[in-house]
Design a binder for these strands. Structure first.
Lengths: 202, 202
DNA sequence: GTCTATAATGTGATAGAC
DNA sequence: GTCTATCACATTATAGAC
């Protein structure tokens, strides 16, 4: 049985992701969660700001798993990247371009208007960067290069979501995936590496 | 003497860019524009939605000029890209991370909630793509490759703005610029080209 | 065309019964 | 802890004087 707070967080995550932070009302959230209105202030005494911060942190952290799901099991780096961006294309098509990044909309909205929320989005992006850096290191990349590749992946992915959801085409996501592959090849060439996964490296 | 309508559009562009579409009020806009409240419904009888659409189209189209400013005058393709992303870094630092893309925030907010506004953002992105494709063609790239490079540039730039403004560091923008350079080098290598500007090509 | 007052609705938040 | 009624305020939008 999922608790009321979890249902509110899940409803908030979906609504913020779709309509943004300012564009989503508290009543909208509790209605979707099937919870009475007062509950939200019982679980989130800090009001909308606290709810927004917890939504960003929880839903954001869940997405860090995607590195382990798509990159880590891959036989080599390039295959991992192609699988990752292929999944992004599939998500866009299957959801008719409604599902993108769980926090990018909020991140842009609050970057200069709400410092606690900005910090929450920044912490999530940094967590993703750490997770990706660890995952890419297992393919033999030194930490600095693994971090660079992760930032290239996240920036390309985020930007592609903006264009794809606006233009309603997957073309930008395909280009973004190819761009990250180019970065990976450059980094591997500099090392003279083959990009195969290391059995026990970290 | 700038007209009242132009001042309203300019104020709306800045406020939407900073706080988003839903997060910006009509009163906020007319106050910043120094115009009486009723004026906005005189010039924009369609209300906030019409104002938003005109702001997106006018401010978005202005930014298409950036290709001509930074890319077209460059001696070669790589130099043009480095200048372009260098200017983005400068903008972030000089504005303390408040200035980014004029329409990305709105694009993510309205992608699934307001079809006329989504279409406006899509038209702007397509106009940018056309402008970039034309600009890169002058360096000898065939149209299809020029379009790919433009999409790589815009997606990387947009995603980097998200991360940079959230994390308050220019690191993602530097990585994004290098990634686009990697794409350009791959496209040039495929052609066996030097990337020098063509005196009279288009 | 300019400007003000106000309508109608929605918002985040709170009080208090149960 | 759950739930409802309601507050005070902000919002978009309109009516109408000048």
């Amino acid at each position: 049985m999922t608790g009321t707070k979890d249902r509110i967080l899940a409803a908030g995550a979906e609504l913020f992701r779709h309509g943004g932070y300012a564009g989503t009302g508290m009543k909208q959230i509790v209605e979707k969660a099937g919870a009475p209105f007062g509950s939200v202030y019982h679980f989130f005494p800090g009001g909308k700001e606290q709810l927004g911060e917890e939504v960003v942190r929880t839903s954001g952290m869940e997405y860090a798993r995607l590195f382990e799901v798509f990159i880590t099991p891959a036989p080599d780096l390039i295959t991992g990247l192609e699988t990752f961006f292929g999944a992004a294309v599939t998500t866009l098509l299957e959801t008719d371009y409604v599902e993108g990044c769980p926090i990018a909309t909020v991140a842009l909205e609050v970057a200069t208007t709400n410092e606690p929320l900005r910090k929450a989005t920044a912490d999530v992006f940094e967590a993703w960067t750490k997770a990706g850096t660890k995952g890419f290191s297992a393919f033999g990349l030194p930490e600095e290069h693994a971090r660079t590749l992760t930032l290239a992946l996240v920036t390309s992915l985020e930007g592609a979501f903006v264009l794809c959801r606006s233009m309603r085409t997957t073309e930008p996501m395909a280009v973004a995936g190819a761009a990250v592959v180019d970065v990976a090849r450059r980094l591997l060439t500099e090392l003279g590496d083959d990009g195969k996964r290391r059995p026990a490296d970290g």
